[in-house]
Design a protein around this nucleic acid. Structure first.
Lengths: 218, 218
DNA sequence: AATATAGTTGACCATATGGTCAAAAATATA
DNA sequence: TATATTTTTGACCATATGGTCAACTATATT
């Protein structure tokens, strides 16, 4: 993960840390819902329940705050699939990957929405990151998948497309949560919705890879 | 499709029609990229290459213009899958559905992005539409899929989840186009990218439904 | 051609916006 | 306790924002 700004974390006080976290959390929600241009510093301050100038004390500009939020989000992403190796059991590794991404969509939908906004907008702040960090990651993960193919553990498959599929479907449940819930006639993204969704997806992905689905799959 | 505003199309002149279309087209791009709150009327006017007051002559407010764009988009959506019936061949119907959605993503990405923005924002303008129009559509399409299951044409599967999967993956290639292209190391969403993507997806979806993939599938 | 109507536009307005500043409050250091 | 430093905050500023208006131009209608 390359640094998006150039702060080497210059040892901050407890008060500063607390306030910064409140701001970052509110900023994540605000930017997620309205995008960078649509976000309002005053509304953001209200969310964080602090006066607006206090935000500018800790983050010089809206842009800088936005970058700080982006950085925080990206740092914690796609962890689960990092551990897959050519020796892994594909079914296990893929299931872990799917379930982790869906958990993130469920428990931190704002992160997914903020990222989606940045991509929709054309990734003006993440273009470099995409090629510098994300592409190598994808290539590396693709090699693992291709190793599974070579070992005939899964059928021949386009590895990048497989990764995109997992990303898009899991993130859909964060970004389009209102739609999904309305169409499923559910009130909230609760445990049962999550269960059904991840079971469906795991099953679907494994079948797509030519793997025998587990017995309990619907 | 229920009307989002109450215009019964009161017979407009050629000049009005032309200008309105220019505005709607520019508005689609502007709202798609920046969302409702992030969109700027002046920037939109520049895109349409007309003075700003001219916009307000044809559309009273930003909100009203936004609704007009939304309506135009929704009217043309999910056409292909409308024609599937219990008697259809599932493989053919699903393939058509996937390819149509991917074509829309490719040739009208702004529509997909605008819709995504509205959903991310919490569907403040489409909540009613979701339950009044979209849910019945999904239920109806789900019945067709369930009929296929009952006829043992496809394996037992959650029909709503299957629809969501097709939507999310196809729309991903519109909404996250920069990301997808960067990670695939492609310059543009051209014919070859589209071909590979739709072939992958059709194959993956058919396998997920327990259908024998076609011979030419990768 | 004269006149009415529809459509276009430069100048403008009230308000909201991101951001500043100086003073106050809280906290650390002596 | 006195002093320096960090953090918070109400008041404020220049600019950008959505929207208006009155004048102007183009197009129909007679």
């Amino acid at each position: 993960m390359v640094s998006l700004n150039e702060n080497p974390t210059p040892a901050e006080s407890e008060a500063t840390h607390q306030t910064k976290q409140k701001i970052l959390s509110a900023a994540k929600d605000e930017f997620a819902q309205f995008g960078f241009e649509g976000a309002r510093m005053q509304r953001l301050a209200n969310r964080a329940d602090i006066p607006k100038p206090n935000i500018h004390y800790h983050f010089k500009t809206k842009q800088q705050l936005y970058l700080a939020v982006l950085e925080q989000i990206i740092a914690s992403w796609n962890q689960a699939f990092n551990h897959a190796t050519p020796e892994s059991d594909p079914a296990e590794a893929l299931e872990l990957f799917v379930r982790e991404k869906l958990n993130q969509a469920r428990f931190d939908p704002a992160a997914s929405r903020l990222f989606a906004n940045e991509m929709i907008q054309g990734a003006p702040n993440l273009k470099r990151y995409l090629s510098t960090d994300m592409r190598p990651w994808v290539l590396d993960r693709a090699h693992v998948i291709l190793a599974w193919v070579a070992a005939k553990k899964i059928r021949p498959i386009d590895p990048e497309r497989l990764i995109f599929l997992v990303w898009s479907v899991t993130q859909h449940y964060a970004d389009f949560q209102v739609q999904a819930l309305a169409l499923l006639n559910r009130a909230e993204f609760d445990e049962s919705v999550a269960q059904e969704t991840s079971d469906f997806l795991v099953d679907f992905v494994l079948r797509g890879c030519g793997l025998q689905p587990k017995a309990n799959a619907s």
